[in-house]
Amino acid sequence: MKHIDTKLVEKKMGSRLTTNTVAKNVFLAATLFGLLVLVILIYRVVADSIGWIDFEFLTNKLSTDPEKAGIMGAISGTLWLMVVVAPVTMILGVGTAIYLEEYAKKGRLQAFIQTNISNLAGVPSIVFGILGLTVFARALGLGNIVLAGGLTMSLLVLPVVVVASQEAIRAVPQFLREASYGMGATKWQTIKNVVLPAALPGILTGVILALSRAIGETAPLVVLGIPALLIPLPDGIFDKFTVMPMQIYYWTLDSALVAEYANLAAGTIVILLLVLFIMNSIAVLIRNKFQRRF
């Protein structure tokens, strides 16, 4: 007694295969749609920027004359911002991750902190801007200098670093810790000599991704009142500054007045995208190179 009726199977075969093909094409179309939008976007930006990106565009200071204007100020502002964000997120982010993974007892408190870190990652960036304005710019009296912007950005990207570092630390196999403890190492010696070196590639990947997010963020800096038109270059973390996305924002606004500002904005976007693309590639390279070593 057979349960599968061969005739019925044959009869339905055609429609089953059709559905299969349709499904495949639906998913392909979904993928292509996203890609298409991206291609159009990049095409338009690149087309607008052609002829505007040259050496002087990168090395000139800001100017109201579109022919002379450059983004040196925004580039150095971004670099100074990184000088604050990189160490602050490294220390706070990796420190938090070590505490949560290696020291904190798995329990309610740990779960509570964990949930809040995840929630923090979902807070809109403008809210961080308001926090930065209230705490760093006003309460601490820093104003709109690099340090205030950098600390605000650090808070914004901190969850990224914490979560990435936690994952990297968790991926270090327990048998390596046991080997270390088994020889009489203390917890800190084990973390320093075994866990962190093994987790470093994952941590670095997280830090680079966090930095690339900080480079592209605009809203918190708008709230902090980062100046629209800033000619002098920042010389340190206590100077006023501007960054690439801010430059893009103001040039786009002002393109109603001077049409060429739109081309300058497009040129800045291309540079910004290039920088982000390079940073993300480095992150992916590190991840692939060190993946699954154990």
């Binding site: 048998f175 390596l176 046991e178 080997a179 088994g182 020889m183 075994v194």
Partner: peptide, 11 residues
Amino acid sequence: GMVFQKPNPFP
């Protein structure tokens, strides 16, 4: 000292 079931040298 302890030697484990699965060899566990450090990387």
